[in-house]
Write a protein that binds this DNA or RNA. Structure first.
Lengths: 248, 248
DNA sequence: CGTAGATTTGAACGTCCTCAAGTCGAGTGG
DNA sequence: CCACTCGACTTGAGGACGTTCAAATCTACG
């Protein structure tokens, strides 16, 4: 199976335009001039796809043909080893790119799963390479996106390699908070799109540990938890935990 | 301080050529045609630098101007957090690129330290972007290199997030073995370039645990350790450990 | 309204860490 | 050449943190 079954939102001839997308200041085309945007309109994004909650956008082993920009919704990326171990390597929200793992081998090496009903912009990779040659700053932006992904992953390695459970959970929540607030959502009221188990997998912890840590944070007045609703009441307190300034 | 002090191996006008480099099948220019190699010769690599053992090629905060291809020697990459936590995020050997972290912000976000006297090829990033436009397959290869770095990091996340100490050490040794043998070195006799502490930092373990694990592997006949000399006697046994087929 | 899945909480256990002592080897100066 | 010294490594014992196993509670969805 090379591709899951999708229904394009638009007929093939009706392509998406970046210039009028409200994510253009967050997504791949940041920093492109009006003229450059006009040049890539209808060429960079060939189609939009709906991905239902729980469905895979692609999975390890699928042939790589495109990278995807999350337009609406929420995704997780997972690697698995032969023996069935699974690790969530990231969560992607609107404006973030999924599928960069496939460029190297022309085959995807991870799974990308929608955590809620989502829509993605399909960026055919061959076309991206072509446009990168024509539009200088698109190439530059694409390199920046990949570089940031590398840096982000190294931050996760720091977290997994040297932080305690409470520090990991605090760092996770703060990161989510910052990314959501960059998209205009409340910086304090978070609705988690993923289960405790998925958080645990991402943080290298068991779901019980995540749950216990949430409870402990609540007992210390850092936040209040109600199922997947999190209200951050003391972001500085969480930051102090991450920075090793305080403990709970 | 934007740059450490280096002595270029060659005068500025005497640039390095990829077409006659013995690493051209491993390094960035893999897959370039003879004509394409000729086109980038003397332009891609502007100079070579010596980096003494223990010296930093660059460090977090340095202005980003170039990526570096390891020509000879061995490097480690480290991220650090505000509170002084340090995490080794990778070890680089000949033919591998260092410095991709800086593209996103035009500032390096990690430290790159030579673990032995080394030489690197300096690839000015602006020139790389220019050449990528002129030479199609150079752009493609560069994307592949970055993509593989992303995949590699996700593999490390899997290791850090879901493997036990013995599995981590086994995976580390096998990885080292494969990369060394791809460069024509013995697949069984490894000379470690890094300390137990650096291995531990990379694997999210303490140096004592690394040491104990080596000893245990030796007791089980998987390898023999003498300081930094490792003789792998049972690679399949190590692989079985990584794959969760056996335990020690 | 009922069931399956997600979450919370408790208790016992195990892996890895911490602290500490001892060994080994390379480099240095007598 | 040998003794000395420092850093790296090894090994042991005890303890901490997170896991495992188990049960209760809660929610969402049909």
């Amino acid at each position: 199976m090379d591709h899951p079954v999708f229904k394009p939102l638009h007929a093939p001839h009706c392509t998406a335009v970046c210039s009028s997308c409200n994510l253009r200041e967050i997504c791949l085309p940041v920093g492109l001039s009006k003229e450059e945007l006009a040049h890539i309109d209808g060429r960079l994004v060939m189609a939009r796809l709906k991905v239902a909650r729980g469905a895979k956008l692609f999975q390890a082993g699928d042939r790589f043909t495109a990278v995807y920009a999350v337009w609406t919704g929420f995704f997780k990326s997972c690697v698995s080893s032969k023996d069935g171990r699974e690790q969530v390597t990231g969560f992607q929200m609107s404006g973030e790119l999924v599928g960069l793992d496939g460029i190297g081998q022309r085959v995807h090496e991870i799974d990308a799963v929608a955590l809620e009903d989502s829509q993605v912009c399909v960026i055919a990779y061959d076309e991206l390479e072509t446009l990168s040659i024509e539009v200088n700053s698109l190439q530059h932006q694409f390199h920046r996106v990949m570089s940031r992904e590398i840096v982000r992953n190294q931050g996760v390695m720091l977290l997994l390699g040297s932080m305690h459970a409470e520090e990991r959970v605090a760092a996770f929540l703060l990161n989510l908070m910052h990314r959501l607030s960059a998209r205009g959502f409340s910086a304090s009221a978070i609705v988690l799109r993923m289960s405790r188990e998925e958080i645990g997998s991402y943080l290298g912890l068991k779901l019980e540990t995540v749950s216990r840590t949430f409870s402990k944070f609540q007992a210390h007045g850092l936040l209040s938890v109600h199922h997947r609703q999190i209200q951050i009441t003391d972001p500085d307190g969480l930051q102090n935990l991450v920075d090793g300034i305080t403990a709970v």
